[in-house]
Structure formats: structure tokens, C-alpha cells
Nucleic acid binder design. Structure first.
Length: 603
RNA sequence: GCGCCCGUAGCUCAGUGGAUAGAGCGUUGGCCUCCGAAGCCAAAGGUCGCAGGUUCGAUUCCUGCCGGGCGCGCCA
């Protein structure tokens, strides 16, 4: 295959026309020939297929009336086989109408490039995308699901657009939350042996904790039953009455939890670390399986603990210190974040010597850059937006190029069932898990619905709609178009002796029969836009463009399908229409693949 | 109070410094002797939150206000 399948500039109308216009501009305005020529699709088809506002934009610099500028350009234009007509309209738009042959030119390109149609030119830049990174302290919920769908899709799209992508999950395995989970599990375990104390309100309440305790009991019997109610509660403050929700009560509950954790470490001895590892492995494994079933995978699972073990946290803080960005106050070490645009200075090392979460995060981001990524993208829940300035400040203080660091925020998803909000509260342990959602609506609908909205918008997730198998449901609408084409192709191949190599055969078809069908030409022009959609979606980190585009492709296909029968008697017409149908199928398939949604042959 | 995000059709949401602002749902009315009706066609529906400013041109950019969401820990 001599033809390049990744550089569309040779044939995409917008590039061909830009070059063609540029020649005319060079002739008409030699001094301004360096100004770029941008082509856009007019909203109103009666204005033509492509338009440029070059005359409008540069009229002032040329000190001429925009219409006169457009007229001067048009005088210099040479005949072009793809151009049917050039008109000047409104204040100075240069409108171009394509010939039908220009519109169908994309079809053989698709049939040649196949699953690479739309792919961008490979580039040298390496990008790391870190997403989900939920604490392994319980099942993923629907909020994590959106981050997972968005991150995975963005990674797919950027990879398809030519980037070298690394997908990473940051495992918060070092903090207090893991201690709380370990304690929670142990308390549930002890209760199975009759060692019962009131279960702390602020410990992990979920049923999965009880399940882990039961697993422990089955595998290890009473091995970890090393406490009594008395030894467990030694020196532990009272639990405040449940109805109290004031700050003092909250603080007392936290102190109680810390005392219980300290007792657990003492009473379990070396077994504490084992238990800690056990709950981590269980939860991380569950999370990994959940995501894998959702079609979301990672190249690296990066341990926060490893940053401490390798001394990276200490080194990062020392580096900041050497650069003079730290000071000591109240016994704690503070990072002068205000010197780099943050609102206030931040503690990196507490008076007791322990590092804050922020300290390990500085080390982690330093490590990302040290691994040589050209671009580092973090995908966070929108509730963490206040954290961005301090991380950026730390990177700047370390002398790193913060323009290579991006944080993309994902807003929360709100579920609706029967037109009503599904209540969710993490505190009470009553949240809908990602797994429940996937099982209820299916992976395809979940993936599609999650990325249907701009990521920084709130998402109303209509469970009833996602489950509906009708044209209301955009997932089925797009999948149906794919399956419908597959069905036609099957029908065709039943009567064809040579079922192999259909793309090769169809790519040679004469497409002239399509040129009299407005619906066919509209579809072909839609397909032609796919590479540009990919490039835009990657550039803007906005994979929702692809979902909207696929809906439009499906709509154009269904409309064409209803006016032109594909499997007609006339051999030439049949082949031309099959070629367009097959090209449509490839675009739908490639697009759905990027979204992690299946492209069924029948449904 | 300060910071970030958002106000577009009855509902859920796209969109862009340009020409008459779009889609789906919902409503109303049509289309299967014919490749999949999970489809198509048509109608109706809008002061793009409000007020200024920049511009040849603003729904888009800037400022202020009104309304909604989120965040402002030696938590992670």
C-alpha cells in the first residue's frame, strides 16, 4: 500500500482548497500571502460547501473594502476540478461550492485506510494521562465511572490522533484512609468472634468491609483475634452521641478513630501490616476488575507508598528547601506557595515530622516529569479544583515547565430514575456503585452516556433512557446504523461468489451513480469530516465531539437509506452504494471503538 | 467573603468572533407488497440569564449584576 493512511492533507477539501486559495491570494496580495487561509463549513448549505472569511478578517490591514478584497482574490483563482462555483456574499464571504466528485473522493480513502481512517500522523510527543486514582477503600461509584470513561476515551482519542499515550492510576495506599479501612475490617472481623464494640460512625460502613472480614475468618480462622473489648478500647475516648454533628463531636470521633488505629497496630503487631496489605490487595483487585470489565485499562498502577520507600518525597522536599521555597513555622515546614500564585502557603511536613498528602503529590508530579513525559495530564473530580494552584506552584518552584502540565476537571454525575434524583451520600455508605450501574444499563450505554456531555458540565444520567432499546437512546441509534449496514452487506455477500476482500473491490467502484443523490453526497461529506473531528477532540480534550459526530453520521446514513435502496439490480449503482455504506460502517466502527462501545453486526 | 464552573426551545444538551442559533426527547401529522420501522419525512417551539463595553460584526471576548453548582484543612 503505497498510499499514506495518516496524512489527510493531500485530499481533504479544506486543505486542498486552502492551497488553491493561497495561490490566488499570493497573486492578488503578495505582501499578505503569509496570512493563513482558514476554511469553514457554512451553517447554511445554500451558502456553499466551504467558505473563507479571509477577506473579512484582513480587509482592515489591506485598507480596502472586504468585498473588493474577495473580488480581487476571485479574479486570480484558476479553474479547479473540485470547485463548481465561487461566489462572494454578505459583507465579504468567499463561498465555494464543490463538484460532486470532490464530495465522494473520501470513500475510496476510507476503504483503503479501513481501521486507520481518521488516525493522525504519529508524533514524537509522549503524554501521560492519570485518571480515576480513587482511594482503594471501597467500590468505585458512579462519579469515578465518569472519570474512568472520560480518561479512557481521551487516552484512546489522543493515541489515535498520533500521541504516544501512557495511562496511569495513582494508588493512594499510604494514607490514614487505608488505616481506617484496615481498622474497619478488623473490627468487623472481631465482631464475628463476639468481640464487639460500637462500630465507629466515621469508619467504613459498607457491606464489602463485612465481606472482607468473613473472607479473613474463612481463610485464617481466629489468627487475628488478638483483642478483647477491653484492650481494644484502652485509652480510647468515648463515642459522642450519634445525634451530635457539631465540630467538637466530629473532632472527638476522629480522635477516637486514631486511638483505635494505634491500639490495632499495638495489638496486632506485625500482623497489622499484613492486614493492611490484605485490604489493599482486595480493594485494588476489585477496582481493577471493575474497570477492566468497563473496558478501562492502565499501563501503570503507581503506588504512593513507593514514593516514601524510595525516598522521593524526602528528596522533593529537600529540593524545595535548597531552592529556598520552604520556611518553618509552628514547628511545621511550609511551602511558600503564595510566591507562585497560590492563595496561601501550604504545609508539607507536620510538626511531628510526617509529610502531608501534598508533599507526596509534589514528589509524584516531580517523578512524572522525571520520567520524560512531554505532557502530563491529570484528570480530577471538579471538587479538587482548589488544589490546582498549589500543585502548579510546586512544579514552578521545582523549576519545571508548568505549561506542560494540565488538569482536566470532571463534574459529578447525578443519576435519575423515574424522573427523580437517585439519592447518593458517601458518608452514609449509600451510593450507587459503578458495577451496579454497568449491570443495570450495560457497559455500552454507560460508556456512551458518560462522555455525551462536556466533562466540565454536570451530567444528568437518565437510567431509564440508557436502558431503553429505542431510537430515544443514542447508543442504540448509532449501533443500529452499524448493524443495519452489516445486515445489508451480509445480504449482498450471500449472492456473491467472492466474499473476501470487499474493501478492495468496493474501493475501485465508480462512484458517479452517487452524484445525483443529495442524501448520499451529504453522508459522504459527513464521513469526510471524521479526521478533523478526531483532531479537534484530541486537541480540545473533548471526546464528546465524537459521540455527537457519530449520531450525525448515523442520522445521515438512516436518511440516505430511506431514499436510496442499496441492493438494486443495476450493477454499477449497487456497487457505488455498497461502497458508501461500507465506508460509513468503517467510520462508525472506528468511532465507537474509541468510545469503548461495541459495534454489533446484528442486534 | 474569595476562587473555579455553568445559565441557549417545555425537558436534556450541542455550537461558533460571522450570514436566517442547532440536535434528541416531548407534542402534532404522515411513511413498511420493497436491503432491519431499534428507521425516515414534516409541523410547531427562542429577548442564547440581565445590563454595559470592545468590534465592520458578539449567543461567542471583557466588566458588573442576578440565579445555580463546587471548593476554600498540619484530610486524602
Amino acid at each position: 500500500m503505497a498510499e499514506t493512511t495518516h496524512d489527510w492533507t493531500h485530499w481533504e477539501p479544506q486543505h486542498v482548497l486552502a492551497g488553491w486559495l493561497h495561490q490566488a491570494i499570493t497573486a492578488a496580495f503578495p505582501d499578505h500571502a503569509h496570512l493563513p487561509v482558514a476554511l469553514e463549513r457554512p451553517k447554511d448549505p445554500s451558502h456553499g460547501d466551504w467558505a473563507t472569511t479571509w477577506a473579512l478578517v484582513h480587509a482592515k490591514a489591506l485598507k480596502q473594502n472586504p468585498r473588493a478584497v474577495a473580488e480581487a482574490i476571485r479574479r486570480e483563482l484558476t479553474p479547479h476540478p473540485w470547485v463548481a462555483e465561487v461566489t462572494i456574499a454578505g459583507p465579504g464571504f468567499l463561498n465555494i461550492r464543490l463538484t460532486p466528485a470532490a464530495k465522494t473522493a473520501v470513500v475510496p480513502k476510507i476503504l483503503t485506510a479501513r481501521d486507520r481512517f481518521g488516525a493522525g500522523k504519529p508524533r514524537a510527543e509522549r503524554v501521560q494521562i492519570e485518571f480515576v486514582s480513587a482511594n482503594p477503600t471501597g467500590p468505585l461509584h458512579v462519579g469515578h465511572g465518569r472519570g474512568a470513561a472520560y480518561g479512557a476515551t481521551l487516552a484512546n482519542v489522543m493515541a489515535f490522533a498520533g500521541w504516544q499515550v501512557t495511562r496511569e492510576y495513582y494508588v493512594n495506599d499510604a494514607g490514614r484512609q487505608m488505616d481506617i479501612l484496615t481498622l474497619s475490617t478488623w473490627l468487623r472481623y472481631l465482631a464475628l468472634f463476639g468481640v464487639a464494640i460500637p462500630f465507629p460512625k466515621n469508619a467504613y460502613q459498607g457491606q464489602y468491609v463485612v465481606a472482607m472480614a468473613e473472607t479473613l475468618k474463612q481463610a485464617h480462622g481466629a489468627r487475628f483475634c488478638t483483642a478483647t473489648a477491653e484492650t481494644l478500647l484502652a485509652g480510647v475516648p468515648e463515642e459522642p452521641p450519634a445525634e451530635r454533628t457539631d465540630d467538637d463531636a466530629t473532632q472527638q470521633r476522629e480522635a477516637r478513630l486514631d486511638a483505635l488505629i494505634a491500639n490495632a497496630k499495638r495489638l496486632l503487631g506485625e500482623d497489622y501490616a499484613w492486614l493492611h496489605q490484605f485490604v489493599l490487595t482486595e480493594q485494588l483487585g476489585d477496582c481493577r476488575d471493575d474497570l477492566a470489565e468497563f473496558g478501562v485499562t492502565f499501563d501503570h498502577w503507581f503506588s504512593e507508598q513507593s514514593l516514601y520507600d524510595t525516598g522521593l518525597v524526602a528528596r522533593a522536599i529537600e529540593t524545595l528547601e535548597k531552592r529556598g521555597h520552604l520556611y518553618t513555622q509552628d514547628g511545621a515546614k511550609w511551602f511558600r506557595a503564595t510566591a507562585f500564585g497560590d492563595e496561601k502557603d501550604r504545609v508539607v511536613q507536620r510538626a511531628n515530622g510526617s509529610y502531608t498528602y501534598f508533599a507526596s503529590d509534589i514528589a509524584y508530579h516531580l517523578n512524572k516529569f522525571e520520567r520524560g513525559f512531554d505532557r502530563v495530564i491529570d484528570i480530577w473530580g471538579a471538587d479538587h479544583h482548589g488544589y490546582i494552584p498549589r500543585v502548579r506552584a510546586a512544579l514552578a518552584a521545582l523549576g519545571l515547565d508548568t505549561s506542560r502540565f494540565e488538569v482536566l476537571l470532571v463534574q459529578f454525575a447525578v443519576l435519575y430514575r423515574n424522573g427523580e434524583k437517585v439519592p447518593m451520600s458517601t458518608r452514609a455508605g449509600e451510593f450507587v456503585t459503578l458495577r451496579e450501574l454497568r449491570h443495570e444499563v450495560g457497559n455500552d450505554a454507560a460508556r456512551f452516556f458518560y462522555i455525551l456531555r462536556k466533562s466540565d458540565q454536570h451530567l444528568d444520567f437518565d437510567l431509564d433512557l440508557a436502558k431503553r432499546q429505542s431510537n430515544d437512546n443514542p447508543v442504540y441509534y448509532v449501533q443500529y446504523a452499524h448493524a443495519r449496514i452489516a445486515s445489508v452487506l451480509r445480504e449482498w455477500l450471500e449472492h456473491e461468489p467472492d466474499g473476501a476482500a470487499i474493501d478492495e473491490r468496493l474501493s475501485a467502484a465508480d462512484l458517479a451513480p452517487l452524484e445525483t443523490s443529495p442524501a448520499a453526497l451529504a453522508l459522504a461529506q459527513r464521513l469526510q469530516a471524521f479526521p478533523a473531528i478526531i483532531a479537534t477532540a484530541a486537541e480540545e480534550r473533548a471526546p464528546h465531539h465524537i459521540a455527537f459526530y457519530l449520531k450525525a453520521v448515523a442520522a445521515d446514513f438512516h436518511a440516505w437509506y430511506n431514499v436510496d435502496r442499496i441492493l438494486v439490480e443495476d450493477h454499477a449503482v449497487r456497487l457505488a452504494r455498497l461502497a458508501l455504506a461500507r465506508a460509513t460502517q468503517w467510520v462508525l466502527k472506528n468511532g465507537l471503538q474509541l468510545l469503548g462501545v461495541s459495534a454489533p453486526e446484528r442486534m
